[in-house]
């Protein structure tokens, strides 16, 4: 193949590349509009397709309306920064509380809160966020519903998604 022919080939292939790259843009808008999350990755109940029981629905409502979601994340996934907090400098996630806490312990934690968030570096500043106590904002029934919802956040056993 002559040199000039090769140059033309490179030029044309460059244009083919441009075409392919433009096509990726259309795919991008499509994908992000669908808000795709594969079913095997949905470990929490907060956006799942399976209908929640009445109790869990009430719990979810409390979780969202009382702004638990704002600090602990949707579905208790966590991810909110809390500088110098001992819990990994973040607000702890809640989707595994079923494993680490008994029901009475959870009820107590929600009612009393954690007024003094333990510091990671004792000489550093107090963490900006702390768990408020909700005993004056929720009835006992509401706390029970909320605890039931939190326990339901534990991901069930799943396959490797292979």
């Amino acid at each position: 193949m002559s040199i000039n022919a090769q140059k033309y080939l490179v030029g044309i292939m460059g244009l083919i590349l441009v075409g392919s790259v433009i096509a990726t843009g259309y795919l991008d808008t499509q994908r992000r509009k669908k808000e795709n999350v594969p079913p095997s990755a949905k470990a929490s109940a907060s956006a799942s397709a399976a209908p929640l029981s009445r109790e869990l629905q009430r719990g979810l409502k409390i979780y969202q309306e009382l702004s638990c979601e704002t600090c602990h994340g949707p579905g208790g996934k966590g991810g909110v920064h809390n500088f110098n907090a001992q819990s990994g400098q973040e607000v702890p996630p809640l989707n595994k509380v079923a494993e680490g806490y008994t029901k009475p312990e959870l009820i107590e934690k929600i009612k009393v809160g954690v007024p003094d968030e333990p510091k990671l570096d004792p000489n550093g500043p107090a963490p900006p966020l702390h768990m408020p106590g909700f005993k004056d904002m929720l009835t006992d029934d509401q706390v029970n519903d909320l605890v039931a919802y939190l326990i339901s956040l534990k991901p069930k056993g799943e396959d490797s998604g292979f």
Binding site: K7, Y8, V10, G11, M13, G14, L15, L17, V21
Partner: peptide, 24 residues
């Protein structure tokens, strides 16, 4: 002139191709 056109095609194709990727 043939060489010149070939060079232009080469240059444009490459720049546009890599440029579009860089844009993404």
């Amino acid at each position: 002139r043939r060489d010149f056109i070939a060079n232009i095609v080469l240059g444009t194709g490459t720049v546009l191709g890599v440029g579009s990727l860089a844009y993404r």
